[in-house]
């Protein structure tokens, strides 16, 4: 039983990171209909910035973390304003291809600036493991889960209760009418890119101790965050979060109890099963957006 709980906590830990990344994807998708395939690379780039601030500049870890987030704000703003908005008149599919191109641009840039080596970055919390009734828990795992819950709560409060959040949802449902009501749709789009980039950067920094900082570090998280978003439902904000936790836990349980070799295949199988019975995802509604 202890092993089971350890696996669940480890699942919540990685699941948190899937959830953060998935929420970023969904936020951009809901406001602009675009899926940002470069989300993982953008997070990787931010992680390198954090790593450099921490090692080369020798900033204390928390300061490096916060400066990285500030960088992510600027990074998201610049990518939206100068790349995505400049192809505003192109179709949604073309814009998605543009984000595919961004993968190459950003990973090329990262290789040129930071090299191809992979580097260790410390955990956010480096205290000794806790032992609660035989269940061994890493304080860092608790930290990651708590950070995710806090970020989610703030985001959900914002989306549900504030006028800004109502404007985001209105834009997601009907962009033209949102404009007619005086909502500055450009600013909403820009904000969703900024928030998504910050979420990705946080996920990147927190996964770095496990994957190391390298140009390919986000590969698995990025893919799993897509699955989380689809399983939970691209049409809702809560779905991807639940999907992220679900996949994280399943990943660990399947890996431990059944087979490590086939765990990815089984988790992908889950995606297919969910889509057969619930084509819009667990929490999804049919997404109808008028432009």
């Amino acid at each position: 039983m202890n092993i089971f709980f350890q696996n669940v906590i480890a699942g919540l830990e990685t699941g948190s990171l899937y959830a953060l990344a998935a929420l970023g994807l969904v936020l951009i998708f809901r406001t602009t209909d675009v899926i940002n395939f470069a989300q993982g690379e953008m997070a990787m780039f931010c992680s390198f910035i954090g790593f450099k601030l921490f090692t080369s500049l020798g900033l204390p870890y928390p300061v490096a973390f916060i400066v990285t987030i500030i960088f992510a704000v600027l990074f998201g703003f610049i990518i939206e304003k100068y790349v995505i908005r400049s192809v505003n008149k192109a179709s949604v599919v073309s814009k998605m291809i543009v984000t595919l191109g961004l993968i190459m641009v950003i990973s090329g840039l990262a290789t040129a600036l930071f090299g191809i080596d992979s580097h260790y970055l410390r955990k956010a919390i480096t205290l000794d493991n806790l032992n609660i009734g035989g269940v061994v828990i890493q304080p860092n795992a608790i930290f990651i889960i708590l950070v995710t819950i806090v970020i989610m709560s703030v985001l959900f409060y914002m989306i549900r209760k504030t006028l800004f959040g109502i404007a985001i949802r209105a834009t997601a449902q009907n962009e033209t009418t949102a404009k007619l009501m005086g909502i500055p749709v450009n600013r909403i789009t820009s904000s969703s890119w900024i928030i998504a980039t910050v979420l990705g950067a946080i996920a990147g920094l927190l996964i770095a101790p496990t994957t190391n900082v390298s140009t390919t570090m986000m590969g698995e998280i990025h893919l799993k965050s897509f699955i989380a978003a689809v399983v939970g439902g691209f049409g809702s904000f809560l779905g991807p979060v639940v999907g992220g936790f679900l996949i994280g836990i399943l990943d660990n349980l399947v890996g431990y109890y059944i087979t490590l070799k086939w765990k990815t295949v089984i988790v992908y199988g889950l995606l297919i099963v969910v889509l057969i019975f619930k084509p819009t995802g667990l929490f999804g509604k049919i997404h109808r957006k008028k432009v």
Partner: peptide, 13 residues
């Protein structure tokens, strides 16, 4: 301010 054709309310709000 405009009240557009076909009402165009935000259906999920």
């Amino acid at each position: 301010v405009q009240s557009p054709e076909g009402r165009q309310i935000f259906p999920d709000l």
